[in-house]
Design a protein around this nucleic acid. Structure first.
Length: 451
RNA sequence: GCUCCGGUGGUGUAGUACGGCCAAGCAUUCCGGCCUUUCGAGCCGAUGACUCGGGUUCAAAUCCCGGCCGGAGCACCA
């Protein structure tokens, strides 16, 4: 198996499907998982991606057994090209880009298509020596000039690019196109199975020509459908621009759909795996469901996630308690062994209470401050009633006066300010803020994970 | 336009290769109810789907033909 990202940026949630599906296959049936970085287009390379991609994969627990960087295999591609040219499977055109494209649309072969391979080999050397301008000559794979799909008719296998490559500099100017390098790599790397998106369906057909003319065994291909991931930014170019302009703080800005951003929000790598395995490999186009993804994540983290109180838009009240009070809220309702969060309140104590909840209360309505006492709303105050109450009433969270303030950032860019109970301040972990949601705390800020 | 690929509840899937055990399973969401000093979980209940039309057959989600809808490709990107 293999996965073959182009190093244009870090991996995002869409890539994680490709990585996990391949990895899962290897985990179940054995074999190698090759990470092949496809950097044969200098214009599409971000030098940082060479490090970010393996880091993302490691975090996802994808076990790469072998790593290949295409730009370090250029001489090998040239060697293969020479072989194929000399056998008449490929040829070199001297037509310019638009001309060649035009001829193909009309199903007209170029004059030199069937020239002696020697001539094409000479032209190939001229290509390497830089005797042609960009776009004025190219190496072409001979397929079927009458093929109904024009892009399959004699596709380009190598083209010139004089741009400096981030890794190899100006050492090479003739780069293989993806369809060529993928074919020979898939063969020589011994690929038996390929899992990729349906966007490669046509490429598979193109690549089969290379396999067939060389008499190579064609791997088993599986294509999975497109997934539309709503509500997040995934386009590398958009992310890059946003980072550059300062709109985003970096690749891990929680508004982005990168693996890094999702990690920062507190998602678990197991969630990705579970989700993509459950999605399977069918060719349907589907919509990514955050609901299901979140539900899976919740199931994984819930047992180990501590509970704390957070009060959004806090308002201070003196509850006029006539006696000292002690709160006792459990760290986790299913795990009494972990004990309680306890706070002592003197007589006439101040607490913070969510303003919105207060507004919703009717006058003289009695509620319970969770794990503390019952209070009644009177005009603009909350007044102590008793420590316990028989009636079933609303239960709302609160925090003591010595709480810290915190800002919670949402993936949609909004921010919520409030107070968090003292025991949770300066924590750096995913917690459940009761009646609010799961949040990844990071000192005086937090990143909203999900409900 | 041409070529290719799809179409199962709101969402995601199982089932389709070898027609019957599928008046369609699971998950999630929403809505009720129970429980609980949050939320979540748990338990109970409810709603909700085979794109349409023909054909083959004793029998079709499953096979065949056609329509409709959706997606992709039509690059010297990957």
């Amino acid at each position: 198996m293999r996965m073959a990202p182009s190093p244009s940026g870090p991996l995002h949630i869409g890539h994680s499907r490709m990585a996990i599906l391949n990895d899962e296959y290897v985990k179940r049936y054995g074999g190698d998982l090759i990470l092949r970085i496809e950097d044969t287009n200098p214009a599409n390379v971000d030098i940082d991606a060479y490090d970010m991609i393996p880091e993302d994969l490691e975090w996802l627990n994808v076990n790469v057994t072998k790593k290949v960087i295409q730009s370090s295999r250029m001489d090998f591609y040239y060697k293969e090209a020479r072989k194929m040219i000399s056998k008449g499977f490929m040829y070199v055109i001297e037509e310019d880009q638009a001309e060649f494209h035009d001829l193909k649309l009309k199903k007209i072969p170029v004059k030199c298509r069937d020239y002696d391979p020697e001539i094409h080999l000479e032209r190939f050397d001229k290509l390497l020596e830089g005797k042609y301008e960009e776009g004025k000559a190219a190496v072409v794979m001979k397929t079927d000039i009458n093929h109904p799909n024009p892009s399959i008719r004699d596709w380009i296998a190598f083209r010139l690019n004089y741009k400096k490559h981030p890794l190899t500099g100006d050492k090479y100017i003739l780069y293989p196109t993806m369809n060529f390098s993928v074919s020979v790599d898939d063969h020589y790397l011994g690929l038996t199975h390929v899992i990729r998106g349906i966007d490669h369906l046509v490429n598979t057909e193109k690549q089969e020509y290379v396999f067939k003319c060389n008499g190579w065994k064609i791997p088993e291909y599986f294509h999975y459908g497109f997934i539309n991931i709503p509500g997040t930014v995934l386009k590398t170019t958009l992310m890059k621009e946003g980072i550059k302009s300062g709109k985003y703080s970096g690749w891990n800005d929680i508004r982005l759909g990168t693996i890094m951003a999702l990690k920062k929000r507190g998602y678990r790598p197991e969630t990705f795996r579970k989700y993509w395995v459950a999605s399977g490999m069918n060719k349907n186009n589907a919509t990514f469901s955050w609901e299901i993804f979140n539900s899976m994540n919740r199931e994984i983290i819930d047992y180990n996630t501590m509970r704390y109180f957070f009060v959004p838009e806090p308002e201070k009240f003196n509850i006029k308690n006539s006696k000292k009070l002690k709160s006792h809220a459990m760290f986790h309702p299913q795990r009494p062994d972990l004990g309680c969060r306890e706070y002592d309140l003197d007589k006439n104590s101040n607490i913070y209470f969510p303003e919105k909840e207060f507004e919703k209360l009717k006058d003289s309505e009695t509620i319970r401050l969770k794990d503390l006492c019952a209070v009644t709303k009177h005009a603009n105050s909350l007044d102590y009633v008793s420590e316990d109450i028989d009636k079933k009433v609303k239960i709302i969270q609160w925090v003591p006066e010595n709480s810290g303030s915190i800002k919670i950032y949402y993936p949609d860019g909004s921010v919520e300010s409030g107070m968090i109970e003292p025991l949770a301040s300066n924590k750096k972990e995913v917690v459940q803020l009761e009646r609010f949601g799961y949040v990844n705390l990071n000192g005086s800020e937090g990143y909203f994970l999900h409900k």
